[in-house]
């Protein structure tokens, strides 16, 4: 997911406080920034929301890669609006994290130094125009699976950011499917591009949910805190069940020989992605890790003079206002 394999912290606070805190969550109450919360809850959330925000920001790059090559004016506008939304989503999420006592600059610093992660999916390249459809359809589709339940997460600012994001996100998935539909129903070449995009994005999309976490202590803790609502396997199954018929409608083939309908579970059986590849990507060895991070580093360092210049002007202008007021008195 956008936040993958988030390690939860062990809580070692006063047991009575902890119990009261857990009772509030169990009762469906929202935790707000000024409420008491276990330090571990705070740290885990910063890590999770931060990673989610970073994913939105880095996620601008693979799609931004095609803005200047979009084939019609309307497609260019749609893609631009979509990538812009992602910047907005990153912004909302950073703000949610900031209510926990971390600054956006701190989080950015941690992303750029490699201490914080972003979703593995954005380390895959967008090679043809059909990939822009596949990203909307599959990647945003997978993200929505996770984001919809997170609207009910226990931390108020995170839940509210998710409500806003989910409202905007459904446009993303639809535009992706619309785009790939045009490709799949187009010329032979377009169809080939659409199939190739599905071939390359299928397994990385399944990886977005993270490896099975049914036995993970981190997962158990996060679910108790309601900052994780479903297991990775549940969401992955839901995603496959939703996506397979959509691929069929397009006349595209899901690249999995073992894909088979299973009446007993009322869902599709499917192959696991290659988890070794997943861990390689996490370690920094995905096809685009270096490019993505260096693009963000460059944007940040090239922009320092701009941010500082505007801050300097604001301080000067404020000083002038104060001086004028003093002179007037």
């Amino acid at each position: 997911m956008y936040a993958q394999m988030v390690k939860s912290e062990a809580a070692n606070d006063d047991p009575a406080l902890l119990a009261a805190f857990q009772a509030r969550i169990d009762a469906g109450e929202r935790i707000e920034p000024k409420d008491w919360m276990p330090d571990a809850y705070r740290k885990t959330l910063i890590r999770q929301i931060g990673q989610h925000a970073h994913s939105e920001i880095v996620g601008q790059l693979p799609e931004g890669n095609w803005i200047t090559r979009a084939p019609t004016l309307e497609r260019k506008a749609i893609l631009l609006a979509k990538v812009q939304d992602e910047a907005g989503h990153g912004l909302y999420l950073y703000c949610a994290a900031e209510t926990l006592g971390v600054t956006r600059d701190d989080l950015t610093e941690q992303l750029l130094s490699g201490r914080m992660k972003y979703s593995s999916i954005f380390n895959y390249p967008t090679l043809t125009w059909a990939d822009i459809g596949a990203v909307g359809w599959l990647v945003d589709g997978a993200a929505i699976m996770n984001q919809v339940p997170l609207q009910r997460t226990s931390f108020g600012p995170y839940a509210r950011a998710m409500v806003r994001i989910c409202k905007e996100e459904s446009f993303h998935q639809r535009q992706g499917y619309d785009l790939i539909t045009k490709m799949a129903q187009g010329t032979a070449e377009q169809k080939a591009m659409a199939q190739d995009a599905l071939n390359r994005f299928w397994y990385p999309s399944l990886m977005m949910f993270g490896p099975s976490d049914k036995d993970s202590v981190h997962s158990t803790q996060s679910m108790a805190w309601k900052i994780k609502i479903n297991t990775n396997d549940e969401l992955r199954q839901k995603f496959v069940d939703q996506t397979v018929p959509q691929a069929k409608y397009l006349g595209l083939t899901v690249p999995d020989e073992n894909l088979k309908w299973n009446d007993d579970k009322d869902g599709w059986d499917f192959s696991e992605p290659d988890w070794n590849e997943f861990y390689d990507v996490l370690k920094g060895n995905g096809p685009c890790n270096t490019d993505r991070l260096s693009a963000r580093q460059k944007a940040w360092s090239d922009g320092a003079w701009f941010r500082d210049g505007l801050m300097a002007h604001a301080k000067k202008a404020e000083a002038r206002r104060v001086a004028a007021k003093v002179a007037a008195e």
Partner: peptide
Amino acid sequence: SEWCGLAPVL
């Protein structure tokens, strides 16, 4: 539009 995703601040 060439700046998209690369501006100095969100």
